[in-house]
Design a protein around this nucleic acid. Structure first.
Lengths: 124, 124
DNA sequence: AATCTATTTAGTTAAATGCCTAAATAGGAA
DNA sequence: TTCCTATTTAGGCATTTAACTAAATAGATT
């Protein structure tokens, strides 16, 4: 389960438009590094992409995108795996699933507590 | 449904430890404004609290807490309703529910796409 | 070995953030 | 009206963030 520090890191990472869009970009997948299409030996999921391929879709410099990717990785919502001189990036679906569960549980508990223990009352 | 700007606002709001804890505090409820217990006419949910009551639980100044609460309200994850000279604060469960659904859908779609359309493949 | 490709690190800068105290506003009670 | 309570606004300051360019590193290719 995600602890508080980890959740805050994730929220911070996604609370910036550029990083949010990079994450969306990684998550949606759809374009792989162009070179890989020629390389028969590179085994990657079609979701995988690499730093410079992502950077192509943004106006920002490569170092800026690299730094953002690092923050997304530290929040554990993407993975970055080095193969050769490139880094393959994929969404970390497990973390996203856990986060979804956290919100679900929160909502569920809230409603349960409210109904069973409190309800809307007039305080006297 | 929550649009992108709204989601980013929510993540930004929760991506700061103080605000995360304030939100948790509001969400967990448990303590109402002390004065309300004496006032038979104030109709509030037991989850409701007010700015100064929240501030009591933090080391930071009242204006700082007030500013953080404003940001949580602008992210639409809490509500603030003025009654008399106090402001009653409650979690906005609807927004949290929607956010949970967003993550759930994201995970679901990811898996569906992966299985139906791609699978892990070797790119040639 | 020299070069090319992919990425990160370092150093700089402007803007945003998170905190503070003091003052202003708004409503309730004496 | 005056005072008290609750909250926000204003202004200031230190830190962090998000961007840049230039240089360094690491691996692949010639």
């Amino acid at each position: 389960m995600l602890d508080m520090k980890q959740k805050i890191k994730i929220f911070k990472a996604l609370g910036n438009e550029t990083r949010f869009l990079i994450f969306k970009n990684v998550f949606m997948g759809g374009y792989t590094c162009s070179i890989d299409k020629k390389d028969k030996n590179v085994k990657v999921s079609p979701h995988a992409t690499c730093v410079s391929t992502i950077a192509e879709h943004f106006e920002f410099s490569l170092p800026t995108i690299s730094k953002h990717l690092k923050e997304l990785r530290e929040a554990d919502i993407i993975t970055m795996e080095k193969k050769g001189n490139k880094i393959y990036i994929e969404p970390n679906i497990e973390t996203i699933r856990e986060l979804g569960i956290c919100f679900g549980t929160l909502v569920e508990n809230f409603e349960t507590n409210r109904e069973l223990f409190f309800g809307d009352v007039v305080i006297k």
